[in-house]
């Protein structure tokens, strides 16, 4: 069982997140591995542990600071870390990013076939959830998204998927791109031994030329969308806070009635 997990370097949810020149500000200090990618790492490790053999690769794309994301994956127990870093990638939209990841996946796959790429359900900065679909399409592999449970058997992967109006079970042949939700598992905590080992573990760095990708296909120039304005929203004005001394329910109701909401 050979699995590659994509991990993203994102601003910590608890930090003051912001934009710089239309792009999400990413710094080494408050950046981390996207929390939902922990579920992807966990799913991959569990599949390899259940199979009793195999390897897990963690792959990230981004500037020098993004290495923090694969270091975190190493702490959780993945076997190999890959970091695609090239200035020409900056400003890529989801389709450019998918091209880069697909090229890196193919490079690993050509050395020895992969069974799965596992991703998180979304990155908690952009939250578009588009990457797994774009990646599956780029690779022309099976696409199984939003898995709340998954299993691999006889060359097929089967997932359960909870949509607002239905619960689906979906199967597809390997190789496949699978995205997992935060319902899929409970991510493990890194142990001391792995934390120490992760510091020294090698991280393979690839540029676009290592992936035989034309820089014109990715980056801000190829992006089909551009953020042209980003500004912090002011806090809600005129907030009212009352402490219940016996009539707060009535006050709340009166507030809703005045607003025409009740």
């Amino acid at each position: 069982m050979r699995i590659l997990v994509t991990v993203k370097h994102t601003p910590d949810l608890q930090s003051q997140r912001s934009f710089t020149d239309g792009r999400v500000t990413r710094t080494a200090e408050d950046g981390t591995m996207n929390e939902l990618d922990e579920n992807a790492v966990e799913a991959a490790l569990q599949l390899v542990e259940a199979a009793g053999e195999g390897e897990v690769y963690a792959l990230t794309v981004g500037g020098p600071d993004a290495v923090a994301a694969v270091r975190k994956a190493l702490q959780l127990g993945v076997h190999h870390a890959l970091h695609v870093s090239d200035e020409a990638i900056a400003g890529s939209d989801v389709f450019g990013t998918a091209k880069v990841i697909a090229a890196a996946v193919r490079k690993v796959h050509d050395e020895a076939p992969l069974d799965l790429v596992v991703t998180g359900m979304a990155a908690l900065d952009g939250l578009t959830s588009m990457l797994p679909t774009a990646l599956a399409a780029e690779l022309d592999w099976s696409q199984l998204t939003l898995a709340s449970a998954l299993s691999v058997d006889g060359g097929e992967v089967t997932i359960e998927r909870h949509l607002p109006d239905s619960h689906e079970t979906v199967s597809a042949p390997l190789p496949a791109v699978v995205s997992v939700t935060d319902e899929a598992n409970k991510p493990r905590f890194p142990n001391f031994k792995l934390i120490m080992a992760a510091r020294k573990a090698p991280v393979t760095v690839w540029t676009l030329s290592d992936l035989a990708l034309d820089p014109a296909q990715v980056g801000a120039g190829a992006a089909r969308t551009t953020v042209i304005d980003a500004s912090p929203r002011p806090p809600r004005a005129d907030r009212i806070k009352v402490t219940d001394t016996g009539d707060a329910g009535t006050q709340l109701a009166n507030f809703l009635i005045e607003k025409g909401l009740a």
Binding site: R239, K241, V242, D244, A248, T250, Q251, L252, A253
Partner: peptide, 24 residues
């Protein structure tokens, strides 16, 4: 939650909701 609420009640929902329902 109070930081983003237009109207916030510090209180017990089991007291506040029935009273609000009655008033509405």
């Amino acid at each position: 939650i109070f930081e983003i609420s237009d109207f916030g009640v510090v209180g017990n929902l089991f007291d506040v909701i029935p009273q609000a329902i009655e008033r509405i």
